Every structure is written in C-alpha cells, then in structure tokens.
Simulated assay, not measured.
Amino acid sequence: MTTMNNLRVGTAFDAHQIEAGKPCWIAGILHDGVDGCEGHSDGDVVAHAVVDAVLSAAGLGDLGSFVGVGRPAYDGVSGVALLRELRELIDAKGAVILNVSAQLIAQSPKMGPVRAAAEAALTEALGAPVSVSATTTDHMGFTGSGQGRAAIATALVDVGGV
C-alpha cells in the first residue's frame, strides 16, 4: 500500500559531448541525420538521467554503481536496455516506479515531432509513465553551441519495503 512515508523523489542530470558520425539515440529513439553523443554506451542522455533519477529515489545509488564504469559488457548498451534492467532491479526490491519526467537540454534534435514515440519507448522499457520535454539554452553554453547535450529527470518511486 502506498503511503506518503513510502514516496521518494529522485532528481538527476546527465551530459555528453556530441560525437560526429555516431548514431543519435535520445529518449529511447534513433534520430536520423543527427550526430549522437559520445559515451561508453549509446550516449542517450535522457535515458541516463531517468536511470539516475529512479536509482536516487529508490536509494540505490547512481548509474555508475548500477552498471559499473568501463565494463566491456556495457560497451554500446542502449539506454532502453538500461531502463529494462533497472525495472527488474526495482521490481526485485519491491519498489514501484510511479512516474518520471525528463527534459532534454539541447539545440538538436527537435523533440516535438517525436515526443509521443519517445514517451512510448521510455514508458514501455521502464514500466511506468515517462513524460519528455525539451528546451534549448538559446545558443548559450556547451549545449547551446552544439558541443553537447544534457538532460534532467525527476522520478517518483514508492519504495514500499526497500
């Protein structure tokens, strides 16, 4: 049973540099014709922020403690795969992810035309509603200059017996 004492909020931030020629996976979907983000994985800053926010809310650390850093098994792993693995962990702990809100901070790709698809991909992988929004920094800073992308996410988790 959900009580106010069992509800926890987690907030997270992730950022990656843009890597020319790398496929662009953002918010669980491939964005054709756009350079992706560097990283050990697929560089999906939105998915990574969601993972960190859920882990934070559940009191289970962060992405580094969840999958480790520099482990060859996670070379190129997709953000969606990480969300599915996270879902299994949360379920095993007896917690329930209630919802997540994530925001991309970047000049590209444009999320409006693909928002529904992104929300569906993330929601299916996580097993909980995920809303996606996006903003720019009006060409200021590393996201505004097109050097990188960032994302923030907030998750609400019923930790139950965790």
Results as ranks from 00 to 15, higher is better:
residue 84 R to W: 00
residue 117 A to N: 03
residue 11 T to K: 14
residue 29 I to G: 05
residue 137 T to S: 12
residue 10 G to N: 13
residue 93 K to V: 02
residue 132 V to H: 08
residue 36 G to A: 08
residue 118 A to Q: 12
residue 84 R to L: 01
residue 140 M to F: 07
residue 110 K to G: 00
residue 51 V to T: 05
residue 120 A to I: 00
residue 117 A to T: 12
residue 150 A to S: 13
residue 116 A to K: 14
residue 59 G to S: 00
residue 13 F to C: 02
residue 95 A to N: 08
residue 150 A to T: 04
residue 155 A to H: 04
residue 121 A to R: 06
residue 57 A to V: 01
residue 102 A to V: 04
residue 69 V to M: 11
residue 24 C to M: 08
residue 21 G to V: 05
residue 46 V to F: 10
residue 88 E to H: 15
residue 102 A to S: 05
residue 80 V to E: 06
residue 89 L to I: 08
residue 51 V to G: 02
residue 145 S to V: 14
residue 85 E to F: 00
residue 79 G to R: 01
residue 112 G to T: 13
residue 30 L to M: 09
residue 2 T to Q: 11
residue 59 G to V: 03
residue 93 K to N: 04
residue 144 G to N: 11
residue 105 I to H: 02
residue 103 Q to A: 13
residue 139 H to F: 12
residue 120 A to Q: 10
residue 154 T to S: 07
residue 160 G to V: 12
residue 35 D to S: 06
residue 41 S to R: 15
residue 156 L to V: 15
residue 64 G to P: 09
residue 90 I to D: 05
residue 90 I to F: 01
residue 3 T to K: 08
residue 30 L to G: 03
residue 135 T to F: 00
residue 4 M to F: 13
residue 125 A to Q: 12
residue 39 G to N: 02
residue 69 V to Y: 12
residue 67 V to I: 15
residue 45 V to N: 02
residue 159 V to Q: 09
residue 155 A to P: 07
residue 55 L to R: 01
residue 56 S to F: 02
residue 79 G to M: 04
residue 40 H to C: 03
residue 139 H to A: 14
residue 146 G to E: 06
residue 59 G to E: 03
residue 87 R to W: 11
residue 40 H to T: 08
residue 77 V to E: 11
residue 77 V to S: 12
residue 99 N to H: 15
residue 112 G to D: 13
residue 29 I to F: 06
residue 8 R to C: 09
residue 3 T to V: 11
residue 51 V to H: 01
residue 97 I to Y: 03
residue 58 A to V: 01
residue 71 R to P: 00
residue 140 M to P: 00
residue 144 G to D: 02
residue 129 P to Q: 13
residue 114 V to T: 13
residue 129 P to V: 11
residue 100 V to C: 00
residue 92 A to E: 12
residue 45 V to S: 01
residue 117 A to S: 13
residue 104 L to N: 06
residue 71 R to D: 15
residue 13 F to S: 02
residue 93 K to C: 11
residue 85 E to Q: 15
residue 2 T to V: 15
residue 138 D to Y: 11
residue 25 W to F: 15
residue 34 V to G: 01
residue 93 K to R: 15
residue 149 R to M: 10
residue 29 I to T: 13
residue 107 Q to N: 13
residue 13 F to T: 04
residue 109 P to R: 07
residue 70 G to D: 07
residue 145 S to C: 12
residue 60 L to F: 05
residue 47 A to H: 10
residue 152 I to A: 08
residue 90 I to S: 05
residue 113 P to K: 09
residue 94 G to W: 09
residue 49 A to H: 05
residue 67 V to E: 06
residue 12 A to N: 10
residue 85 E to P: 00
residue 114 V to H: 09
residue 148 G to V: 11
residue 108 S to C: 04
